[in-house]
């Protein structure tokens, strides 16, 4: 098992390296040159040319990638912070440190000053949503799949299909009308500041609810399908004909086997909740990671895009590793082979 995890960690590092190269290539080669994007639309051609030379943008791709990697790992200085350029890019951490993602032209601040707050906000939202989605979907999925075709199964399945098929912007508006407009319990936007007199908790309620409704319907259906399949297995018949009560058959014999298949899907929801909730964040003006990524892309903020994509990728690869480990833990046939 230890060897397995080590092997996977090495693989993880390699994947990340390859992914970072792709991210670099894709962002640097998007339309328009890097110097122009950094300086913005109002810079003179002379300024752009100067920066172009300073950044040595004529160099081959691999050399530039190596330089970027050097800045990221703190081996090289960040060229943009050179005072000669008069860009006024200042980072209190200095121009050479590990994890230097560069300077966000959109927010006029080092990427590290922007990105972690946004990630924290999203992690808060995603964490609460995930903490509700998982137990809720497991319970509902198991209840539905336990007796295929029963009224509980039908009710839960229909509920799942309905909530999944309503888009987030629709359910967001709909829920606001109920909870905000009619009942006056929650604000319409969630900027996560208490200046308007709304508590942080009340600001979180609607975004969390939208995400839970949207995502749990999908997870419920996955769990239900797997559970229904397991309930038809011969070993469940063995458990029943052993004379075990239905509850023991479900909890002791069925649930663990029914978790094996949806486990990966459940962990994939983490990725979705971190980087895929742009719509919800936009609807509620939530200062989150997804919305930041969207804004950065729209204003061609290269450093921020690169950093955000890299972080999203890291999260995806780590959840993948976790799901592989969890899969092995749940399934002794894999763990012990």
């Amino acid at each position: 098992m230890v060897a397995f995890v080590l092997k996977r960690l090495v693989g993880l590092a390699l994947t990340l390296l390859a992914a970072s190269f792709l991210v670099f290539v894709v962002t640097e080669f998007s339309p328009g040159n890097v110097a122009r994007k950094t300086l913005g639309a109002y810079a003179t051609p002379a300024q752009v040319d100067l920066l172009y030379q300073r950044l040595k943008l004529d160099d081959p791709l691999l050399v530039r990638y190596g330089r970027w990697l050097g800045v990221l790992t703190g081996i090289l200085r960040d060229p943009l912070q050179d005072p000669d350029l008069k860009l006024d890019f200042r980072d209190p951490r200095g121009d050479r440190y590990f994890g230097n993602f560069g300077y966000s032209t959109l927010f006029k601040a080092p990427v590290n000053d922007v990105i972690w707050d946004r990630l924290k906000n999203t992690a808060l939202l995603a964490g609460i949503a995930f903490a509700i989605i998982v137990p809720l979907s497991l319970v509902l999925g198991v209840l539905a799949g336990m007796r295929e075709g029963s009224w509980i199964d039908r009710t839960i399945s229909i509920f799942g299909i309905v909530t999944t098929s309503i888009p987030e912007f629709a359910s967001g508006v709909f829920l606001f009308v109920i909870f905000g407009f009619w009942l006056g319990l929650v604000p319409g936007t969630s900027p996560l500041t208490t200046s308007a007199g709304w508590s942080i908790a009340s600001q979180l309620l609607l975004p969390v609810l939208v995400l839970v409704l949207y995502d749990s319907g999908y997870v419920v259906r996955m769990v239900r399908g797997s559970m229904a399949e397991v309930m038809n297995k011969p070993y469940i018949r063995t458990a029943i004909l052993k004379g075990l009560p239905h509850r023991a058959v479900v909890t002791r014999h069925a649930v663990r086997n029914a978790m094996i298949a949806p486990f990966t899907i459940i962990l994939l929801q983490i990725n979705f909740l971190i980087s895929g909730v742009v719509v919800t964040e936009t609807v509620f003006a939530y200062p989150g990671f997804g919305r930041m990524l969207l804004e950065a892309s729209l204003s061609k903020d290269i450093s921020l895009i690169e950093a955000a994509t890299l972080i999203a990728l890291t999260i995806a690869i780590v959840t993948q590793l976790l799901s592989d480990i969890g899969y092995a833990l749940l399934n002794p046939q894999i763990r012990l082979s």
Partner: peptide, 13 residues
């Protein structure tokens, strides 16, 4: 006693 003992036993217990 069942046919196919591999299927009749719970694989995760």
């Amino acid at each position: 006693v069942y046919q196919d003992p591999s299927a009749a036993l719970n694989p995760t217990m």
